[in-house]
Amino acid sequence: MTLPTAALHDAAERFGTPLYVYDAAELDAALARVRSAFGPARVYYAMKANPNLTLLRRLNAAGVGFECVSPGEIARAEEVGASGPQILVNGPAKSAAEYATGARLGATFIVDREEEVALLPPASRALVRVNPALEVSTHDHLATGAAGSKFGVTLQQAPRVLEALRAAGHTALGLHVHIGSAIRDAHDFTAAFGRLTELREQTGPLAVLDAGGGWGLDADLHGIAREARAAASAFGAELWVEPGRYLVARAGTLLTRVVGTKRTGRNFCLVDAGMTELLRPMLYGAEHPVTPLWDGDEVGIWDIAGPACESGDLLARDISMPQPTRGALVAIGEAGAYGAAMSSNYLTRSRPAEALYEPGTGDGQDWTLIRRRETPQDVWAAEI
């Protein structure tokens, strides 16, 4: 957790809970770490991690492009002023709207299968996504470079797809690889880049090697960057990278209040946030650091449980903390990625507000509201 405890209490009082809060300084620091490691590589933010427009504008102003995987994400990129080479259009099953809007904006398309070559708008710029068929150190649902994954073309298909792009009048910029998210072992990247460089004799020189992202939050970025640069150099290519979770995860915290406690077969600390606000623990078994924002001498082991009528609605298990009291605050850390982005209206729950912490800004206030809390009427506004 990067934010001062007093600031977290202030935000909860001002905006209510559940509440997502973001530390602008940590967001800037994460981008600085990426640029320090990867040097002149072009940086594209994988928008699906957190698409809040205020954060996108901040990244756009810093010269970061956007990797988009839906029509809505392309619209967000355009809304914050991105166009042309600042936009990548990715995804295994792109819609007609994505092709049309991407072409209008001059975006680069990441081709995910051979048949897609015939679907591209005329004279497109494209990369070919390669699946290196690796078992990697992450949850199965996050492993996008495994042989059984739906993503990318095989190593054997890649040279043929590059040639098909050229034959169809497109600009075949090069290759793309992304093996997953929250990768724990840096050697997984070494293996992926190594498999791509095996294609050098078949592809010849390329303009771009996009090394994706997926680095664990504690990854040796400089080591990964050395391997990525070596792979790009083998092709004579410019290096591109696509960090998502790495840029925003540690910048974000989910604040939730204690509703009460319950002792059955386990000790439950009941809070006002759950799977509708933070799905990752239920979806991936993800573990987030939990900080109780109160003191006490009576320490016990607690599960943090949300309000949904679902047995899996648990934000954390086996947390050592003082006896919870109604109204006390709990901070769920590393929640800036795939937290608010995956929040839902299941049970007609209103998605939480979001606020940005940047001391000395916002009319002298440390906090700026960057998404208002939904009302029930917002939730059903599109229903007829």
Score class of each variant (00 low, 15 high):
K262W: 07
M342L: 15
T154L: 06
E135I: 05
L221N: 04
A25T: 08
A353F: 06
G236N: 02
W240N: 14
S83H: 15
S311F: 12
T261F: 09
V128I: 13
R226N: 06
S181V: 10
K262D: 11
E354C: 14
L347W: 15
N131W: 12
G174K: 14
T375F: 03
D295Q: 14
A30V: 05
T256W: 01
P205H: 04
L134N: 07
V136A: 04
T368P: 01
Y20A: 02
L155S: 02
S95V: 08
G84Q: 11
E227A: 15
P4Q: 00
V89T: 12
E238W: 06
G312Q: 01
A353V: 09
A353S: 12
A316C: 01
Q365E: 14
M342D: 11
P359H: 00
V69W: 12
A62M: 04
R373M: 01
L329N: 03
G223T: 09
K150I: 11
E73V: 13
F109R: 08
D23N: 06
R58T: 14
Q202Y: 07
P92F: 03
F189G: 01
G213V: 11
H288N: 01
I224N: 01
P322A: 02
L105A: 09
E227T: 09
G106Y: 10
T325L: 11
A219E: 06
A25N: 04
H176P: 06
Q202E: 11
V21T: 07
E227P: 03
T375E: 00
T108W: 03
R57I: 08
N90H: 13
E227G: 01
L199V: 12
L119E: 15
A100E: 15
L279Y: 10
A251N: 04
A168L: 08
R280G: 03
V208N: 02
A305T: 13
D297S: 14
R373T: 08
M275L: 12
